[in-house]
């Protein structure tokens, strides 16, 4: 277990390192000129342009910029060098927003709780509802319930979040006032306000994603119900409930944990379309905007965080696997 963790964390760190190099390289390969976009295209004098370029150290070769970025993460750095406006950025320094001169760690600190709120709440909805519906469909296979559920699942699976989101907003928020307008209120400030502001995004995310879980869990459950050990459970004289829950569900849930782990891990790095649909400034929306602005440190920071969440979620999935299935031994074969 301990060796497994060490191994996986080291692997994760090297992944993050590779990603940071890639993002940096991509940025300098492109035609982006952050200094120009920063001082405005029309009234930008060469002097101003020059000053911004020097301040942000954009005149230095990419590998030096990368080195100073990395130094910033571990020991902190001063951005702007000798300039009187120089910004002190303590470790772990992820650079500053080229536009607002705000530290990237502050940007992430502000946007992360928003994305986390949307994704975690939505995930509870889609995993529970989706899996529950799928299991029921499998048990009542071929019934009217199964057909309606499968049809609905297919419909939602082929819809986009911006469409469902807009319909929800139009019908339940703007026209009928049944649900509150999406906004982010920190949980610590007002738990009820947090809940109210998140409810519409959760429903939207839940509807879209639960379809996938319903279909997956239905297929899994049907397969598991035909397993020999389920027949053994019936042969013992068990009642319906323990056969389904103790014997079939336990075995069917493993692939669902995998998919859920990867889904949630991926979404924690930002759900750009959902955030944009509901005008919530989470990590995804911020990252998309930063790309438009050629705002390298913001892009880099959010990409690194997203990657970290994904790496962490795969580690957690592997640990959960070994908890669910006693045949899985962590570390003996890379955890699989």
């Amino acid at each position: 277990m301990f060796r497994f963790l060490i191994k996986r964390v080291l692997l994760g760190v090297s992944t993050l390192f590779a990603i940071s190099v890639t993002v940096f390289a991509l940025f300098f390969m492109g035609p982006a000129d952050p200094a120009a976009s920063m001082c405005g295209t029309k009234q930008c004098t060469p002097v101003q342009h020059e000053r911004i370029t020097t301040f942000l150290e954009l005149d230095r070769p990419p590998h030096e910029q990368y080195a100073s970025y990395m130094r910033g993460i571990f020991v902190g750095r001063t951005i702007g060098g000798d300039s009187p406006d120089a910004i002190e950025c303590p470790a772990p320094c992820l650079g500053i927003n080229f536009r607002t001169y705000e530290q990237v760690s502050t940007v992430i600190g502000r946007t992360m709780p928003i994305t986390f709120s949307i994704v975690l709440g939505g995930a509870v909805l889609y995993v529970l509802i989706g899996t529950g519906l799928g299991m029921l469909s499998a048990i009542k296979r071929g019934s009217i319930f199964d057909r309606i559920a499968s049809g609905t699942a297919l419909t939602f699976a082929s819809t986009q979040i911006f469409f469902i989101g807009s319909v929800l907003l139009l019908v339940f928020v703007y026209q009928t006032d049944l649900l509150p307008l999406p906004k982010y209120v920190p949980f610590t400030e007002s738990p009820l306000g947090w809940l109210g502001g998140m409810i519409v995004p959760w429903i939207a995310l839940g509807l879209i994603n639960s379809a996938q879980y319903a279909r997956l869990s239905r297929a899994q459950m049907i397969e598991t119900l035909s397993e020999d050990f389920v027949r053994t459970a019936r042969a013992k004289g068990l009642a319906i409930a323990p056969i389904y829950f103790r014997h079939a569900l336990r075995a069917a849930v493993t692939p669902i944990v995998t998919i859920a782990g990867l889904d949630i891990g991926g979404q924690l790095g930002g759900v750009a379309i959902t955030e944009t649909t509901f005008s919530l400034n989470g990590m995804g929306r911020t990252a998309v905007r930063a790309i438009d602005e050629a705002n390298l440190p913001v892009v880099m920071g959010i990409v690194l965080f997203s990657a970290m969440f994904l790496v962490l979620s795969t580690i957690i999935v592997d640990i959960l696997y070994s908890v669910i299935d006693p045949r899985v031994k962590l570390g003996t074969s890379g955890g699989h």
Binding site: E227, D228, L238, A239, H247, R250
Partner: peptide, 23 residues
Amino acid sequence: LRLLRGRDMAMIFQDPLTALHPF
């Protein structure tokens, strides 16, 4: 019928590896 199963009549299956629950 399930009250008879396992108590009055029981069954042994061909492959005990798949017939026993792996978890």
